[in-house]
């Protein structure tokens, strides 16, 4: 019964992704095949959209990978007994960090590192690191101490307690953190265009500069569709984990 409903959920998510992709392709075709004037025709081509899409995806992927690879190990390390006393303070610090606007982080990085793709990735990685760290800390801290005591009592080796008890139980929380990090990154990657990072934000800037709505709509819609598709992908991962 349960497997069936998850199979259905899996299929629904897959359909959502395909549907979103189709909408995105149709939008591109509409703009490229029916540009509102010659300026638009000059500036928007299949090739350019593909390049920008690729840049956008690679910025998001790099920033997210950076965030995951630092935040999860950091979260695990900081929940070990010797650091445990610090956890509440760290969660407080992470909260303060999360209050800092993404644009401000990007701007600060530009001020310190100059413009470029690396600046954008670094800034976004920093921004999206906090929700993952926060959720990893909260998720591992939420594991019932009685379970840990039971595992230790049964003679499970300490490192296996982490991999076989703590991490599996905290996994849902960590995945939720990663999900919101990726969503944040897809939106923030639009800003990368301002700091020379490329990506779909360039369409918005171009559209705004030449005040052509068509280009702006395309630049706004594609990241949005990407965010919705990412949401569906994470739904699929959730279903996959349950199966």
């Amino acid at each position: 019964m349960r497997a069936n409903s998850d199979d259905a959920g899996y299929a629904v998510s897959l359909c959502r992704i395909v549907l979103l992709a189709v909408i995105g392709i149709l939008l591109c075709v509409a703009v490229v095949e029916h540009p509102q004037d010659r300026l638009v025709a000059q500036l928007v081509s299949y090739h350019r959209v593909l390049v920008l899409l690729g840049q956008h995806l690679s910025i998001v992927a790099s920033a997210s990978a950076l965030a995951i690879l630092t935040a999860v190990p950091a979260g695990v390390l900081l929940t070990r007994p010797r650091f445990r006393a610090w956890t509440p303070r760290l969660i407080g610090l992470a909260r303060i960090g999360q209050a800092v606007p993404g644009l401000a982080v990007i701007a600060l990085s530009v001020g310190l590192l100059g413009v470029g793709t690396m600046t954008a990735i670094l800034a976004m990685g920093l921004c999206s690191l906090l929700p993952i760290l926060n959720n990893t800390l909260t998720g591992i801290n939420a594991v019932d101490p009685a379970l840990l005591a039971a595992a230790h009592g049964m003679g499970v080796a300490p490192r296996h307690v982490l991999t076989r008890v703590e991490l599996p139980l905290a996994l849902a929380m960590i995945m939720a953190g990663i999900r919101s990090a990726v969503t944040i990154n897809i939106g923030a990657a639009v800003l990368a265009a301002f700091v020379g990072g490329g990506g779909l934000g360039e369409l918005i800037i171009t559209g705004n500069t030449i005040s052509r709505v068509q280009v702006m709509v395309l630049g706004a819609a594609l990241p949005m569709l990407m965010a919705l598709a990412a949401d569906a992908v994470f739904d699929m991962i959730d279903h996959g984990m349950k199966l």
């Binding site: 969503t183 897809i186 939106g187 923030a188 639009v190 800003l191 934000g201 918005i204 559209g207 705004n208 005040s211 709505v213 702006m216 709509v217 630049g219 706004a220 819609a221 990241p223 949005m224 965010a227 919705l228 949401d231």
Partner: peptide, 14 residues
């Protein structure tokens, strides 16, 4: 919320 904020503002200009 999934609309990037910059995109939302850009769409409001017209």
């Amino acid at each position: 919320m999934t609309i990037p904020s910059l995109a939302l503002f850009a769409l409001l200009i017209p």
